[in-house]
Design a protein around this nucleic acid. Structure first.
Lengths: 218, 218
DNA sequence: CCCGCCAATATTGTCAACAATTCCGCCACC
DNA sequence: GGTGGCGGAATTGTTGACAATATTGGCGGG
């Protein structure tokens, strides 16, 4: 799936992706109404296309639709965010374990390289870069695991909790906490230690969940 | 979900559910083309409604859509079915563990009652009834677990693999194998043994996966 | 001063016709 | 005899107008 085809048939921009990205980027805040007419204008698409997009995004759990009352960006309360993370923990642990079983030398080097970059980003206090590396690490682990279904599920769940994830990632001192957890995950996977990778992922996501709870106490 | 509401507001029957059920029931076989005009006639709905339905079902992973070439019932190859079951294992294990932690006396009695019914159904050789009870057991465990997100994910995955599940369930001698596994799950959950419930679920789903592999060797 | 009704408005849902695309059989041509 | 183009049919995609439904603000009664 080429997310950025160089010159190919991406002439006709996909409205669904546009709206999805707008939501995940935060252009639309949770709870905000998404009125078809407005979106039609904003994205220069037909109403039918907008309708289809909203339908698809509703299936993805990103927007809520109630009959005859339209769509709005779904607001994920804390307890539901926790549930999402509990599922993520189970599925990411599966992916990490599988990745540990299947990893090759080149891929191991790549993961370690991401680890080094993360260390550097934390040392420089570059939170944004760390966030990107974090996402890339998790994505790469999923890819190495070869579990397409698990990847789909995780991608879906991540989209739903991207806001909470952002809140946590930008907490002061948070990178210092999560960096060693990430490095532990990388080491376990590269060592082919499925059991250890499973544990390391769970430790990491537990830590994220704790931080999430703390963040919401404000 | 009342499939046959007696008098309620089910005047306007939902096309999406109808098609979904038709697929899961096997009225449409995997790979079969789903032509909008035909569905329009068959379900007495407008083409727009059918289109929306196909869009939604595609998001659910039940049908495949390619641009300008229409929709067809998605065919799930064995290796993908296995992946689906690996994810199910992870998530159902989570649900079982949570259910074990939260179960009350009334619910425990209900689960045990399902267990007895299953025993009876196997003794009578009533495979269909056993299948129903099986589904109800898993569903009830999800409900008791209180994990909405996990339930959604599982419901989705179950819809995709319902065909394989059927193949396995109707294998001769299969109920005799899975009955004790189910009873073990029930006992662990009722005993409040989260760890044991997790293990029991994994044992059971591993067994299903093995059976699935054998079934596809034909 | 507050509350429930009613019309006006905003918004979504549905429909039918039209445009664009792909598929399939046929025929000329090599 | 095989191959490549060329219509015609089938099917999906899009558009615009219309119908159905919910929301809002005002108005009169209590």
């Amino acid at each position: 799936m080429p997310s950025d085809a160089p010159s190919a048939t991406r002439v006709r921009t996909n409205v669904t992706s546009d709206i999805r990205e707008a939501i995940m980027r935060g252009d639309f805040v949770p709870g905000q109404r998404l009125i078809e007419a407005d979106l039609t204008e904003q994205f220069a698409a037909s109403r039918g296309a907008v309708r289809s997009a909203l339908l698809e995004l509703a299936a993805d759990g990103l927007v809520e639709r109630v009959a005859n009352r339209g769509a709005r960006v779904r607001v994920v309360p804390l307890d539901e965010a926790i549930e999402i993370y509990e599922v993520r923990m189970a599925v990411e642990a599966l992916c990490a374990a599988k990745a540990a079983e299947r990893i090759g030398d080149a891929e191991a080097e790549e993961l370690r390289s991401i680890g080094s970059d993360m260390r550097a980003a934390v040392a420089d206090g570059d939170t944004m870069r760390y966030r990107q590396l974090n996402q890339r690490l998790h994505q790469r682990i999923r890819e190495i695991s070869g579990q397409r279904t698990a990847s789909n599920v995780l991608e879906r769940l991540r989209a739903q909790s991207v806001r909470q994830q952002f809140k946590v990632a930008t907490m002061p001192g948070r990178p210092q906490v999560s960096l060693p957890e990430h490095l532990a995950i990388i080491e376990a996977i590269c060592a082919g230690d499925a059991e250890g990778a499973d544990r390391a992922i769970r430790v990491h996501l537990s830590s994220v969940m704790d931080a999430m709870r703390k963040a919401s106490e404000n």
